[in-house]
């Protein structure tokens, strides 16, 4: 009988049943038996390779990543709920996080209002004749600013307040200039 193929000898090494005639040949032929046994030794060496153990924290890492994905999918913020409960701050928006805070904006407006009031008061004090209708308009506008803030139009009120600062400054400067013009010329040597 001719020698069986190498594939047949590998099948024999893997424990598959060969046709009776082929199996009998393998057992009686030193060359075929040697080849089959070499296949068996290789298989045993491969099967004896040590198994690599997964890192102990691998399962936790997978589950944590999956939990994060699920939270994100149902709309829960990706932060840590426990930390949030303990008072950790929420993440700030990425755009201009400081300048648009309502408290800070309100502070600016109050400051501007105080400045306007001071300017108007100075105008009245130094040039009572010249301020007249300007003063009335300015004070009315200043009084309107808190109403605008109350209505939520903070940006509009801020712009208005800055305009009032400019108007009051003009009134003050013009009134002081008028006073200087009207003052008697002293006789100087």
């Amino acid at each position: 009988m001719t020698h069986p193929s190498d594939d047949d000898l590998q099948r024999a090494a893997d424990g598959l049943v060969l046709p009776a005639g082929v199996a009998a040949h393998v057992e009686s032929c030193p060359e075929c038996r040697g080849t089959r046994d070499a296949h068996v030794r290789l298989s045993r060496a491969l099967s004896a390779m040590p198994r690599m153990e997964a890192p102990p924290d691998l399962a936790d890492a997978v589950l944590a990543a999956w939990a994060g994905e699920r939270e994100a999918a149902v709309g829960v913020p990706a932060g840590r709920p426990a930390a949030r409960a303990l008072g950790a701050p929420r993440p700030l928006p990425s755009h201009d996080p400081e300048s648009l805070r309502p408290a800070r904006l309100l502070g600016w407006i109050v400051g501007i209002d105080v400045a306007v009031a001071a300017l108007v008061a100075a105008a009245v004090l130094f040039a009572p004749d010249a301020v007249g209708s300007w003063t009335v308009a300015a004070v009315s506008a200043v009084l309107a600013v808190p109403a605008l803030v109350g209505a939520g139009l903070t940006v509009v009120s801020a712009i208005g307040a800055w305009a009032l600062v400019a108007a009051a400054a003009v009134v003050l400067v013009s009134s002081i200039g008028l006073r200087v013009t009207l003052a008697p010329v002293s006789s100087t040597p």
Binding site: M49, R51, M52, E53, A54, P55, L58, A59, V62, L63, W66, A67
Partner: peptide
């Protein structure tokens, strides 16, 4: 979630061995 933990713990070892080889 407990079932997910069991499944991950059961299969991370065999998959790691495969992946390492």
């Amino acid at each position: 979630p407990e079932a997910a933990r069991l499944l991950v713990e059961r299969w991370s070892g065999p998959l790691y061995n495969f992946a390492y080889r």
